[in-house]
Amino acid sequence: MVKFVKGNEAVVIGALYAGCDYYFGYPITPASEVAHAASAWFPAVGRGFLQAECETASINMVYGASAAGKLSMTASSGPGISLMQETISYMAGAELPGVIVNVQRAGPGLGNIYPEQADYNQAVKGGGHGSYQCIVLAPGNVQEMCDLTMLAFELSFAYRNPAIVLTDAMLGQMMETLRLPEAELPRPETDTWAVSGTPATRKNLITSIYLDVAQEEAINRTLQEKYARMQVEARAEQYQIDDADVVLIAYGVSSRIARTAVDKLRATGVKAGLFRPITLAPFPTAALCAVADGRKLLVVELSCGQFHDDVFFHLAKGLGRVVNVGLLNRMGGALIAVDDVVARVKEL
């Protein structure tokens, strides 16, 4: 069955099918529709909704629910996500799951409410203190706003690690057809680690304090090993790649513009393709290296080049040598025009 919904609403549908018990959030444009839909739909299906007093409280409520072995989430944008970083670090340190949806707006500072992708480094490279890594998923359409929110819960509980759905104002506010999920996800087993106020969980402990230096280092190494294991979850979509001379590399809102550009370029005889990471962390390094080698590359993104720099880094890491990667970007909430992508590719 299909529904015509906003991306921000699809997030809530995905969360509920994933079994999310509680939504904790604070409104902010352009993420507010997530809270609006959650406030209506969570109680309607017997789950809980709470508008917290601030984003700091929201994320600490997510921390608390996760510590109790329950599924919960929050959603915000820009300034609100920045406020959450301390506790996302705590979640990583205490190995707690939990889903955070970032409907990116333009920054820095108060910025504006139009789409940008400038929280890439914050999401993918940590954002809070310490050596940690979130799982970061990047939907490219309304269907994936739902599906990847479900996946975020699944991976988050499988790896006991915070997961971020990194999306943007356009994907959040646009409407598109959503096929409802086939079934709800099975409930994850949490009694072995969570503190749920039950006899079975009474001796469990959720903490991230390790005063002993050797123990803290061991914990850090364990975390890094976990992040390395998560690499098998990397995924990407390839569009018109096989015979492509030029590969556009983009995620989220930019990937949609790039996809239209690929169609336009092919209509004029230019063999273009699109590589779209679906997971930004873990990054689909091997798949990217396999398609990128020997082709002209252009990153299309809405930031100063944060994603571009990471593409450059992963290619160098995967191929063992430096590869030239072009950048076409806008900032401040401006979208990239399809014609600009087409023109830039023809210049390559």
Partner: peptide, 26 residues
Amino acid sequence: DVGNIGAAHGRAAAVCTAVCRTCPEA
């Protein structure tokens, strides 16, 4: 000797809010 959760500085009330709302018996 009870269930223990370490909370971030100042955030015990948020943690407890989530625990009591998601675990009716806790």
